[in-house]
Design a binder for these strands. Sequence first.
DNA 1: ACATTAAACTAACAAGCGTTAGTTTTGTTG
DNA 2: CAACAAAACTAACGCTTGTTAGTTTAATGT
Lengths: 194, 194
Amino acid sequence: MKKKIRKKEILKTAAGLFKEKGYNAVTMRDLAKEMDIKAASLYNHIDSKQQILSELILEVAQRFTEGMDKIDCKENPALEKLEEVIEFHIDITLSYTDVLASLNNDWMHLENQELEDYLMMRQRYEDNFKTIIKKGIEEGSIQHYNEEIMLFSILSTLRTLYLWYPKKEKIKAEILKEQMVDTLLYGLVRRNLT
Amino acid sequence: MKKKIRKKEILKTAAGLFKEKGYNAVTMRDLAKEMDIKAASLYNHIDSKQQILSELILEVAQRFTEGMDKIDCKENPALEKLEEVIEFHIDITLSYTDVLASLNNDWMHLENQELEDYLMMRQRYEDNFKTIIKKGIEEGSIQHYNEEIMLFSILSTLRTLYLWYPKKEKIKAEILKEQMVDTLLYGLVRRNLT
DNA sequence: ACATTAAACTAACAAGCGTTAGTTTTGTTG
DNA sequence: CAACAAAACTAACGCTTGTTAGTTTAATGT
């Protein structure tokens, strides 16, 4: 029981270090020092450095996948779904900021089954996202621009949010979501007639 | 004379490897093998692994800074400047795709003066970008949304382009620029009256 | 209180790291 | 073709890495 608590502490600390320096630049001794113990002691709680990375990444990847599925299976208008996905993505980002650094920058250091699993989940997430955009174009609510570019434009912003948000704490989460949806969906340029 | 050529080859190869695995995961032996020589031979052309990273990053950072300055000092309407900056950013991305991976993910492994220089140039670039957006709001051409969010939204997309574009070669550069400007500035949502 | 388990420790390993020294091969130029 | 420089090589260095073995301390349950 308690064993899991200590393990979670290690994972959390590791995520913070991975975010700052990247997976490969963080040594087990760095991690141990941050926890005020010796490196060997870590192995009472975890199996390997590799395992830390994969547990961190796969948990969040699963949340993303589940959340997206839940939104996607409902029968709402595409535009509504799009807003939901953006807000959901922001929610996860705010509660897993550190881990998202690893997910974005260190996923390629996963191995074997874990790497495959991650890649599959990411693909699925992107596919669902794209399908929603396509649907929006069909429904006439979304511009007739290149759908790949639109998908990339939104997704890249959402994916980088973990880097930017911690520096701007004065922006409250609710306001952020509202304004982000506006910016991403309605663009920067002011039109004469809404 | 010729010495420089071989060095450039090394830098280019390194950039490719850094992009795939990250600076710390690439060893001098990896780099040497990719060049079909032994690791020790690399040191006939370069001083250190660190130097490779800083030469790669600082060169591109300088191009960004110069280009931005050149656009910013002209007396055009903000919206026009914004388009220019986006297109310029895309141009650089297409000619330095590999290096941009290091610039985005491995800049924190720079040291001393080089790290300072990089951070200063990045700050300057962002400040100029933000000023243009502010000007656009004043001029009435840009939405009254949160300017930090708008800046982040555009910049994050541009910064991640190096990851996405190589996978979509069927999109020609000119079309990309056009569509990207549209997507970023005019958003996804279709309005009733332009 | 005592026995058991959890979690820290010290010490060390084999492997891999960036880098240097010294030597040989390759290529160029007079 | 001889002389010199450029660029490859072999061998090794000191250090750091992730991890294991074995031991001691702290916490927990009966």
